[in-house]
Design a protein around this nucleic acid. Structure first.
Lengths: 408, 408
DNA sequence: GTTGATTGTTGTTCGGGCCAACGAAATGGC
DNA sequence: GCCATTTCGTTGGCCCGAACAACAATCAAC
């Protein structure tokens, strides 16, 4: 607890050091093992400066130095590798889906060490879900190296999450209103670690940006198709959040004013056309299978006509997204993943029909590079964020004996 | 031309100095005369550090130190004021409207020194517009102090502007496609200064954020009603641009799929309902008065029924904007300004009807605090941006004898 | 084996912000 | 009117971190 955290718009030397330390760690986290020479080039700092930063991270047990990578080319002395330690810090990520919770222990560097899953019956109350999640957290943490610090917990929720405190304002699929899920989980664990809660689509965008299809892209949209439809947006390299964190609610864009009434009260929202219930109905699936829609679509090899027309509507709605955000990638997640695989032509046609051509020309539609783990990994990335801003402070707030504490 | 510009994600000492120098200047620019004590508090740096920065800016002739402000309260030695020099650097801002061009000489600090206007007849070719604008630029620059440096020119255009090079991709009202208007103006002036071109709505948002209604707000939308409808968005304090700079094109959100055909090719875009031509037609204005719609609305005291129903549609469309961006302010510019004055209740009702309540509760509708000058001042802010990033480099690129050069 | 290229290491230099001490300028109580 | 108090500007010394330079280590190419 050395220095008081300084505030203000100016930059001082402490801040420089913090920033450089965090940035170096982020590079290794993002791109895997890197030679010191590569880091020197990417960060634009002096060799000796990099050496100092690396040795400080080494002393913090965050990274380890490896012998030079084999298979490199070119003359000169080979540069030592810098990589994340296997028994280094980790986070716990929680992906709360429509009908199940996935919890994983994820190390710095994005490696998923352990994973546990449990079903969440429909209309379960928040505290019960919290207890279930806490149980899964205990499972995965029990498997961690005893000394490895737990940096924090990240939770992805399909709903509106207030950014200031992580309050879940409204999660229609879970039927939650104003639930402080973070506190519930911490209480169930009787543990005090940093916990962050975020919207699932936002977190999908985050992980695809950092280690998925959109690594080199600073403007992207991740479209989540769960039961509802939401977008996670990264623009200029930053998460689009809005004042309170509710930005990206594209599911309620007006698509057809004479359409069906949506649960939000309006009529003809895009969600009523391309959301899971609408697709399930078009395919005549039983209503209790809506949560499994993704798998059902995965199993199809050809698309019936009803599905193809929905794909066109997906494309038309995407045009609005493209016009508004001018992204270079739109990633189709959730049930849009198999839908896009089946009906790529229809989606593209719908998009082309409605999007303004300069924006249309700049965009590419893509599948999530991390498959079904985008959201889970995004929750991990969110929980890791503080360690890249200030490694020392973040480690100070971490829990170093998590397995013992949670077992007790 | 001292140092090569370093690149990379790391921060070095030069960068710290640049940043602090620019940030101090920005504070004085944003908030007017400030005491050194206030600057110390806001920037979180040491008194002596501030003293060093101030004296460096003083030597660059950017600011001047004034005797302590009168009317202050409290004990202690009064702190000297820091303010922008009247004969300090300035920019030239150009607001290219539908039927006229406004050019102004604007100093650091946002003071409009001189202003000149000329009509732009319909369907004038780009090079002719460039010549007209160049003439106006000569007029306003001729009045500047002979030694004051011209930092650059900022141009606001009602259309899609590519961010990488300022190319005007498409400006429907001017009937321009792929026009490099910056180069045209510079050629007409035979001058080489930094010139930046931006979208009018984006620039409206920028100036309202810096010195208008939204000074303390980091998430806002400026809705421009010219002939078309566009939005300038600032989110988390940053301009929303998208990969190429086309973000914010909300005018072509689908509002009624069975509506009128829009010039973009789609049907029932929001613009076809609340754009100037639609309002003019509803009011039975002659077609050549469309560009004057704002003034016509200004002169009205009560709103006819047709106008009220358009206001409702404006509110409904705003709901989409609010759901997507979750701003804390939406500023209604252009012809939406008088429309909102006349029909505040209808707009608000339309918004409430469709917006999701958490986002709805966070937002406030507002009139531009800078009135009709938002866009002009935004163009100035854009042109000034480099001087806040690196004052020394920006001054090196400035022209110090602009009046003489342009007169010759 | 020799040469050239590249990188790590070490010690030194440079520069920027911090700190403490002191003087200056105003307020307020007596 | 005087003096204690408060706040601020200035100055010189200090610390820290990045840059620089010289040297050693390592490998490729000839």
């Amino acid at each position: 607890m050395a220095g008081v955290q300084r505030v203000g718009t100016g930059t001082n030397q402490e801040a420089v050091r913090r920033h450089n330390l965090g940035t170096l760690l982020r590079h290794v986290h993002d791109s895997g093992e890197q030679s010191r020479a590569e880091l020197t080039g990417q960060m634009g700092l002096n060799r000796s400066t990099i050496a100092g930063l690396v040795s400080e991270l080494d002393e913090l047990s965050l990274i380890e130095q490896a012998s030079p990578a084999v298979g490199r080319r070119g003359a000169g002395r080979p540069s030592a590798g810098v990589r994340i330690r296997d028994d280094g810090p980790y986070v716990v990520a929680v992906d709360l889906g429509v009908d199940r919770a996935v919890v994983a222990r994820i190390g710095l560097g994005g490696r998923i060490w352990d994973r546990a899953t449990a079903p969440i019956p429909h209309d379960t109350e928040a505290w019960q879900v919290g207890a279930t999640v806490a149980g899964l957290v205990r499972q995965v943490v029990a498997l961690s190296p005893p000394e490895a610090p737990l940096l924090g917990i990240g939770v992805a929720i399909p709903g509106l999450v207030r950014r200031s405190d992580g309050l879940v304002r409204h999660a229609p699929n879970l039927n939650w209103h104003d639930v402080s899920f973070g506190s519930i989980v911490l209480a169930a664990l009787s543990l005090d670690v940093p916990i962050a809660v975020g919207n699932d689509a936002d977190l999908g965008a985050l992980s695809e940006h950092r280690r998925g299809t959109a690594v080199d892209v600073d403007d992207l949209v991740y479209l989540s198709g769960n039961v509802g439809v939401g977008a996670g947006v990264i623009t200029g390299g930053n998460r689009l959040e809005g004042v309170a964190g509710y930005a990206g609610e594209v599911g309620h864009l007006s698509h057809d004013p004479r359409g069906l009434v949506c649960h939000c009260g309006s009529r003809g929202c895009w969600e009523t056309v391309v959301g899971a219930p609408a697709i399930a109905e078009a395919l005549r699936c039983p209503e209790d299978q809506v949560a499994r829609l993704g798998e059902i679509l995965e199993d199809m090899t050809t698309a019936p006509r009803e599905l193809r027309s929905i794909a066109t509507e997906l494309g038309r709605g995407l045009a609005a997204v493209v016009n508004i955000f001018n992204p270079s990638v739109v990633i189709l997640g959730g049930h849009f993943l198999p839908l896009f695989r089946l009906c790529r032509a229809e989606v593209t046609a719908g998009l082309t029909e409605r999007a303004l051509s300069p924006a249309r020309d700049a965009v590419r539609l893509a599948l999530p590079g991390l498959g079904g783990d985008s959201i889970l990994l995004g929750a991990a990335e969110m929980a890791m964020e503080p360690v890249f801003v200030d490694p020392v402070a973040s480690l100070a707030a971490a829990v170093t004996d998590a397995p013992a504490r949670l077992a007790g």
